[in-house]
Structures are given as structure tokens and as C-alpha cells.
Write a protein that binds this DNA or RNA. Structure first.
Lengths: 243, 243
DNA sequence: GCGAAATGGACCGCCCTCGAGCCATTGGGG
DNA sequence: CCCCAATGGCTCGAGGGCGGTCCATTTCGC
């Protein structure tokens, strides 16, 4: 009998035989909390949910959650206080060490995340525009746009992230929000390696306005088109700096 | 001091404070392998990678992988043979028990997965059409389309899934393929609850042809439009049967 | 016929994670 | 003033998952 050939290796199989879990529970928890803090979902000064509550939400034991929180505390991201009305609070971020890119297969990561984003975000903008948004969501979109436009350069990326997440959230589908959040986290890791230029900010703000306006006007094609154009700018910028 | 209000509960936070892991390694592995078998990525008769290799790819220990494979074997999905050129082989699927929907928050799940799909798949089709596809990918798309068009009703959904995955794969971005695969798995769980009607199959085949033609012609807007129309049909069908 | 190679099968000791319970601290309300 | 409620801090025993190692089986090539 000749050896059963799995030589050609269906590339599709790679998508299924990929790692089942990203790491141990501790690491994944730290990563998730860091993501929430860096993307500005948990703003400085905010109190995180109580440990007993948060552990249940994250689907981990309180022991493991506490280990993660202790690591974040030692890194200066959060601060804990005991007693009634105590809790774990987000500190004004130190965020000093943007870890240098491993640069191993940076080109592949760049292409992958840009494609993923090009798939997700225009679709999210379109779906958001196609819904009858409740007043609360409309206000949230407007507020996020405003926050972004008035941000100091140091705050820009955090608020930019929040705006994009607000759009994803406006689709009403939690899994869309989760997917956009993951893509955004990967993108931010790449963005940390390149400078933030005022002309780009100005350009982005105009495009943000176009996207939000189209969503609030209930014009899906326009929302999609505006978002696609917006992403093209960032993509070109990243490719220019990292290729 | 008044209690720090986390009453309003930023809905965005829910996307970040969601469970870190879906279950234990054993369960997740069984689920992943079942996904590969049900979606036809691992076809009947195929040999799976050797345990030592597969365990590394899935990022789990061989012990845990073997427990998962043993469960699949007892359920009749795979069969193992020892010795050189032995291995674990996919059996012609029994697939008898489509577990009845929990139906708990079925409406929410339905809305979520349909929105996710509406975001992902038209975007994937558009991105695939925008690329210069290598000959191998073009052949794969044509073959998948043909497989789907000539499928017996019993095989239709498996081949349909493979076609959609082939489109995602054509974007060249592994994370897009992974996201589409996950959405498809959730969708299939819902589709199992409704009948497969010949007119729908015929309708789907025409739409599939339109999507693939647009992709091979390098016409992104047409690919997106054709896929959007295709998804609308399935979405309407599901909403009709499950609402 | 026989050894080498590749595979599934089985076991052991270590560490991570969990669930549960209890302690320590703080501020508000009676 | 004292007790209660809500929070973080801590510990213990049980079970799961891991890395490593060796065994059993089968087939190819010499």
C-alpha cells in the first residue's frame, strides 16, 4: 500500500486545525482586560465589576481572575480598594512600553488583518444604516463622533477605536461587535509602530462624519462607501510604513 | 459617598466581559473536529493528521486530543487503525441525531447570526473578486460550484458549506475563513431545524453561479450584490420557519 | 525473514484551574 | 455607636490538562 497522501494539505483544513485555545486562562484574561482598557471601553477612573461578578461573566474562576488583576495592578493599569463601595478601578494609563513588533511574519499579519477589517467594517456600517436605530444608539454615535473630533492627539486612537466599536454595536449583533473588537485590537498593535500625523487625523475626521451621517440618515450604500474609503486611507498608510 | 453607579452598564462592555473560553479543551476539540466533519472539510474516507501532529496544530496535548477522538469514535464519526500507514479515518457519516434546538433565546441567536453573516459573506465575496486569484484558487471555486450544483439533496448542505468556505478562503485571509466557518457552523445548527425544499435548491444554485462568475470575472460590486441577494433568500426562509 | 519506521495506545508526575468557604476592610444606616 | 452589607484577600482539596516516555501493532524495504 502506498502512503495515504496528505501532501497537498487542503489549505481549508488549516482553518479548522488551528489552535483550539489562544493560551491559558490567565493570559487570555489579562489580554481581554488590557484590550478593554486600551480601547477605552473601561475608561480611566471607572470601576470594574466586582470580582465575583466579573469572574462569572468571563467564565473563569475568581482565583484566576484575581491573578490577572494582580498582574494588571503590578503593571499600573488598575488599582484595588477594599471595603464597601471599594472595587478595582482603572488608572490613568501609564502605557509606556509599546512592545516592539516581533516583525517575524509582519507582512502576513498586516495583509490578514487589513482584509479582515475590509470585510467587517464596511458591512457593519451598512447593516447599522439599514436598521431603525433607537434614540439611545443615535445619541451614542453622535457623541462618539464628537469625542473623536475633539480628541487630543494622545487620546485620538482610543477614541477612534471607540467610534468604530460604536458603529459595530449599532448593528445590534453582539458577535459583530466582538469580531470588530478583535480586529481592532490587532490593528492597534500595528498602528503603535507608526506615527500619528495631524493631516491624517483631519482626513479621518471628515470620513468619520460621512460614515456617521450616512448611518443616521439610514443610507446603507453611502455608509458602506464612506467606510470603505476611510479604511483605504488607513490601509495605505500602514502599507507605506510597514512594507 | 454614594455607590459608584455601574447601573447603566455600557452595552459595549458586554462584548468585552464575555466568556474568555467556550468550554474545556476536550469539549472544544470535539466541537472543532465535528465542525470539520459536518462541513465536509474532512471528507469521509479521509485520513486525519497523525495524533502527534494534530495535537500540535490544535494547541492541545495528545492526551486530550485522544479523549476527543475516542468520543468521536464511539459516536461513529471516525475509526482508528494502528501500525504504519494507519491513522484515524473519517467514516461515512451516521449523523442521525440532529439535537433539537434549545429554543431558549432562539430569536436572538437567529438575529445575531444572520447579521454576522450579512456582514461577513458579502464582504468576503467582494474581497475575493478584488484579488488576482491564482489558477489553483480559480479551479477550486469552479469545482466547489459544480459539486454543489450536482449534489444529491442529502449532500446539499455540506457542499453548500464548502462552497461558501471556498469563497472565504479566496480572500487569502485566514482569519476571514475562520470567521465565516464559525458563522456557518452556527447557521447550520439553525438550518437543521427546517426542511430543504427543491425550489430553494434550484434558486440557490443560480445565485451561487452568479457569485462565482462575478468573483472569477473580477467584478467586486457584482460579487457583493449577488452574495447579498443569496443571503437574503436564506435569511427570509429561516425567519419564516423560526419566528 | 527481519529490522526500521510510523502509527495508535497507555501511563506517570506536575501544574493550572476551579469551586467553595472564610477572613479583613470599609462605609452607611439604624 | 454598632451592626450590616459589599467588597477585595486568602487558602484548601479536587479534577483537568500537559509533557514525556514507553508499549503494541502494522507495513515497507532490504
Amino acid at each position: 500500500m502506498s502512503p495515504p497522501s496528505d501532501k497537498p494539505e487542503d489549505p481549508l483544513a488549516a482553518a479548522f486545525f488551528r489552535p483550539v485555545r489562544a493560551g491559558n486562562a490567565f493570559e487570555e484574561t489579562v489580554e481581554r482586560m488590557l484590550q478593554a482598557i486600551r480601547l477605552g471601553v473601561a475608561a480611566p477612573g471607572t470601576r470594574l465589576p466586582a470580582e465575583r461578578d466579573l469572574a462569572v461573566r468571563l467564565g473563569i474562576s475568581r482565583v484566576t481572575l484575581r491573578e490577572a488583576l494582580r498582574a494588571l495592578q503590578e503593571a499600573g493599569f488598575v488599582e484595588s480598594r477594599r471595603g464597601r463601595y471599594g472595587g478595582t478601578f482603572v488608572r490613568a494609563a501609564p502605557d509606556p512600553p509599546p512592545p516592539p513588533q516581533p516583525a517575524a511574519d509582519l507582512a502576513a499579519e498586516l495583509a490578514d488583518v487589513l482584509t479582515l477589517r475590509a470585510v467587517l467594517e464596511p458591512g457593519a456600517a451598512e447593516q447599522a444604516a439599514a436598521r431603525a436605530l433607537p434614540p439611545r444608539a443615535r445619541r451614542h454615535l453622535r457623541a462618539s463622533l464628537d469625542d473623536c473630533a475633539t480628541a487630543a492627539p494622545a487620546d485620538y486612537r482610543r477614541r477612534d477605536s471607540r467610534l468604530h466599536l460604536a458603529i459595530a454595536e449599532a448593528t445590534g449583533a453582539a458577535s459583530v461587535t466582538a469580531a470588530v473588537a478583535d480586529a481592532r485590537t490587532r490593528l492597534n498593535a500595528l498602528l503603535d509602530a507608526i506615527p500619528l500625523l495631524p493631516p491624517n487625523i483631519d482626513h479621518s475626521d471628515h470620513q468619520h462624519t460621512a460614515v456617521i451621517t450616512a448611518i443616521l440618515d439610514g443610507d446603507p450604500p453611502a455608509a458602506r462607501a464612506a467606510m470603505t474609503e476611510h479604511l483605504a486611507g488607513t490601509a495605505a498608510l500602514l502599507r507605506g510604513f510597514l512594507s
